[in-house]
Design a protein around this nucleic acid. Structure first.
Length: 569
DNA sequence: GCCGTTTTCGGCCCGACTGTTTTCAGTCG
């Protein structure tokens, strides 16, 4: 019996209990037990007594026990007999929760999406106490939406929307300050919606402006402080705006950044001190509300350092306060080691990219256009690579306080050979090796290709090591423990590609790299000046794996970096 | 169902919005 099955079973039990209209605290106890198992890194066999975990007691331990000895849960079986399976999808309908569904089942015998639809159409639902015509109409509307209801959207789909709304809010004179919040701010790979905190003294005016300016498919809610809309985009996106006063900003931003689990822990912390946290401030024992200028002051009130949003998952962020000080921040970044220009498939010239890097206060960076194999991207031949080098030197001559290094993003070919010979590579300052072809080869072949790159003394870094695209494709499935071991052995850097399409290495792989002591570079892989902004996403994503600053190559000074790239020459 | 430097019972995070009633329950985040 593996741990995942047990976690899923506990969650399933919670779901069925919800459909019975069970006590919400009992339901949440089962979810907490599942979360406790998930948060613990040990496997089941390594735990001698699960009840020692906070959140697992007699009842939930009995379920685990049952699963381990018989392979199934008698509790779940009982629930499945009482509660029709067909009710599960109804929980996805907005406006319907466990209690209402339980009532529909008990009073009208509803047991599926189909029977609910029939009951609505026959106007039977509006006769129930607590339901009325409007609810019935809403259920019918949501039932029609059920099929094409979008689940979680990938970060690369949301990022341009966030950018656009930020521009809009920035242009409104009644808006004093604002920030994106929610799981997007926590650098989640996918989100259900986008949240914004907006400071204004003119809530009504802002509400009207938002409702009239945005391309809206549906207004879900429009109250005094909360506006919730679904944007009319190719893929509909839900956006929530919370309108607050300036003095409420810090606590509102914290509250709506979450995660839910983090907030619960914070509130328990407050409660233990006789205080009460809400989005409006911290209520003291005497009833007065204390507010804060920013999140740092809010955390300081509870003797905590400012916790980066991506770490707020309700577990070790409260304990590992020392490690938080060591984490990389955007202002620590001194370089970007992976980008493209018009020489291959980029949109800007060497000089234009150089100026954009200078504008970001970087000390150095590397131009890494594609190599000759990648014809679709206008990859460079050795001859063109040499010419590009002259252009880079000219830029450097005009900017003595900054240095653009000459590099390449060289393809590792399907047959396992490298796209440039050693004497070409020798001329370069920095060499990236990447796979862009034949993703479907066996793992052995993929690993053989990567090993060639690892063993080449002129290669410094492997870019986007798995080749995944979030929510689109899995990549070429390398054996990561092996790859990381080779990186350690041969002194190579592994990339955290910060392009929101990729975020590759992913969090789990970054944690493995950290454990092995393999240095990581956070790079934007920019094909456009605008893409340099992805560094921010990369840094926030890296925080999720607790990578300390000194493990991140592009926080190193130019001198440190030069020493690293020269060591095999 | 779980938990206890207030507790073995009585809490469990807190507030907005909607739709239902007419002061509140349910849902949601």
């Amino acid at each position: 019996m593996n741990k995942k099955t047990i976690i899923r079973t506990l969650e399933k039990i919670a779901l069925y209990m919800e459909l019975q209209g069970e006590n919400p605290f009992k339901i949440s106890a089962f979810r907490k037990a599942a979360a406790a198992l998930e948060a613990d890194e040990r496997s089941l066999s390594e735990m001698d007594d699960v009840t020692k975990l906070k959140g697992i007691g007699k009842g939930t331990a009995a379920v685990i026990e049952d699963l381990m000895s018989t392979g199934e849960s008698s509790l779940l079986k009982e629930l499945e007999e009482i509660v029709p399976k067909g009710l599960l999808p109804l929980l996805k309908l907005p406006g319907l929760g466990g209690k209402k569904i339980a009532k529909l089942h008990q009073e009208l015998g509803i047991d599926s999406v189909e029977s609910l639809k029939e009951a609505c159409e026959a106007h039977k639902v509006r006769e129930l106490a607590g339901f009325a015509a409007k609810t019935e109409e809403k259920i019918l509307k949501e039932l029609a939406n059920l099929a094409n209801r979008s689940e979680r959207l990938p970060i690369w789909q949301l990022e341009p929307v966030v950018l656009q709304i930020e521009a809009l809010l920035g242009s409104m004179e009644e808006v004093e300050r604002f920030s994106v919040a929610g799981s997007f701010r926590r650098a989640a790979e996918t989100s259900k919606d986008i949240d914004f905190i907006v400071v204004t003294e003119a809530a009504e005016a802002i509400r009207e402006k938002l409702l009239h300016t945005l391309a809206i498919q549906e207004v879900v809610a429009a109250g005094d402080t909360k506006i919730s809309v679904i944007l009319d985009l190719e893929e509909p996106v839900s956006v929530d705006f919370r309108l607050v006063k300036d003095y409420e900003y810090a606590t509102a931003l914290h509250h709506f950044t979450g995660s839910k689990e983090h907030n619960v822990r914070m509130r328990q912390l407050a409660k233990a001190r006789g205080e009460k946290i809400s989005e409006y401030g911290v209520e003291q024992a005497d009833g007065t509300i204390q507010t804060f200028q920013d999140e740092a002051a809010f955390f300081a009130h509870f003797d905590l350092p400012w916790i980066p949003p991506s770490l707020r998952i309700g577990t070790m962020e409260f304990d590992k306060t020392e490690a938080i000080q060591q984490l990389v921040r955007l202002e620590d970044i001194k370089a970007d080691l992976h980008m493209h220009t018009t020489w291959s498939d980029g949109a800007y010239s060497v000089a234009e990219m150089g100026e954009a890097l200078l504008a970001r206060d970087y000390q150095y960076s590397v131009i890494t256009d594609h190599s000759q194999f990648l014809k679709v991207a206008n990859g460079l031949t050795p001859e063109r690579l040499r010419k590009q080098g002259e252009e880079i030197e000219a830029f450097n001559a005009a900017h003595p306080d900054f240095r653009l290094f000459k590099g390449t993003e060289m393809d590792i070919l399907p047959d396992g050979s490298l796209d440039f010979s050693d004497d070409v590579l020798q001329q370069l300052d920095f060499v990236i090796a990447s796979i862009h072809s034949s993703f479907t080869q066996s793992q052995d072949k993929i690993m053989a290709r990567l090993l060639t790159a690892m063993q080449n003394p002129y290669v410094h870094m492997i870019a986007h090591p798995t080749g995944r695209i979030i929510a689109e494709r899995d990549g070429y499935n390398p054996d990561m423990p092996q790859l990381i071991a080779w990186a350690k052995e041969h002194g190579k850097i592994l990339e955290l590609n910060a392009n929101p399409y990729r975020l590759d290495l992913c969090v789990a792989h970054l944690e493995m790299a950290l454990a092995a002591g393999v240095p990581v570079a956070i790079n934007t892989d920019a094909h456009d000046i605008e893409h340099l902004r992805f560094m921010d996403i990369g840094v926030r994503y890296a925080n999720r794996a607790w990578l300390p600053k000194d493990m991140i190559v592009n926080t190193w000074t130019r001198e440190q970096f030069e020493a690293f790239i020269r060591r095999n020459k």
